[in-house]
Amino acid sequence: MKASQFVIAFITLALAIPFGDAYDPSPLQDFCVAIDKLDNGVFVNGKFCKDPKQVKAEDFFFSGLNIAGNTDNDVKSNVTTVNVENLPGLNTMGISLVRIDYAPYGQNPPHTHPRGTEILVLVEGTLYVGFVSSNQDKNRLFTKILHPGDVFVFPIGMIHFQVNIGKTPAVAFAGLSSQNAGVITIANTTFGSTPPINPEFLAQAFQLDAHIAFQLDAHIVKDLQAKFA
């Protein structure tokens, strides 16, 4: 990938910093490198902190975002995440980063990030992106078609998506305003929960008249649950 594309990608991360300062708790120390267990440290933002005297440059380093993700899957996309789980130095910093690869006509299906706003920049291909506002705002759909160099913001908690509408692969980078923004994929959580949600409840939730062909709709829900189990 061209060097200029990485410049754009890291500008995306820089732009995400103000959001991070506004959402995750502000750190009261230079850094709090995450460790899995307490060794003369303290517990901050869900992680124990390494003794500052033992912190190394490697704690703030991640390599591999130049490598395309495997898009050979049902949705034809791949998200490579850089957050506190694989970059310990991000602990308490309030930011994280992802690379998203899309095969032709692949998509990042409708999902939410419960703990972070996302700012995305497209570096290759053409994407159709959008988000849906809350019930309070009448569930309005906001969409754009993005070309390389275009940027789009997905507000925290809003259901959003990206679809590659081109015949060639697409690549995007996104910054998120949390060290671990989380992800809730709508189809997976609705139809793939453990244990599964009662299919008759879901059948009623997804239709206007719950009494019309109720059992037939319940069978459809069961089929969907089997796919996402």
Score class of each variant (00 low, 15 high):
1 M>Q: 08
218 A>V: 09
11 I>A: 10
101 D>N: 05
77 S>D: 03
13 L>C: 07
157 G>W: 00
164 N>D: 10
18 P>Y: 06
217 D>V: 08
114 P>C: 02
132 V>T: 07
50 K>V: 04
205 A>T: 10
47 K>P: 02
225 Q>P: 08
94 G>Y: 03
133 S>L: 06
31 F>T: 15
59 D>L: 13
71 T>G: 00
146 L>A: 04
43 F>C: 08
13 L>Y: 02
99 R>M: 02
102 Y>D: 06
88 P>H: 07
174 A>K: 03
179 Q>C: 07
175 G>E: 12
132 V>L: 12
10 F>M: 11
152 F>R: 08
132 V>I: 15
166 G>F: 03
183 V>M: 13
34 A>K: 00
69 G>N: 02
25 P>S: 11
218 A>D: 08
105 Y>S: 12
109 P>T: 02
210 A>E: 14
106 G>R: 00
170 A>P: 13
195 P>Q: 04
154 F>N: 04
6 F>S: 05
44 V>T: 08
74 D>H: 03
64 G>D: 05
181 A>C: 12
143 T>I: 08
114 P>L: 00
86 N>V: 14
49 C>G: 03
193 S>Y: 09
224 L>I: 15
136 Q>V: 10
75 V>M: 09
123 V>A: 02
158 M>Y: 07
81 T>F: 06
83 N>G: 14
224 L>K: 14
54 Q>N: 07
193 S>H: 08
148 P>I: 00
41 G>P: 09
217 D>M: 11
112 T>Y: 01
202 L>S: 01
218 A>E: 14
165 I>Q: 09
206 F>A: 01
158 M>Q: 09
141 L>H: 00
83 N>T: 11
154 F>M: 11
216 L>D: 09
208 L>I: 07
30 D>L: 15
145 I>E: 09
195 P>M: 05
79 V>K: 03
26 S>I: 15
205 A>P: 10
151 V>W: 11
71 T>I: 01
120 L>T: 05
227 K>S: 13
228 F>N: 15
225 Q>W: 09
3 A>H: 10
119 I>W: 03
54 Q>I: 04
146 L>W: 06
34 A>V: 02
18 P>R: 05
122 L>P: 09
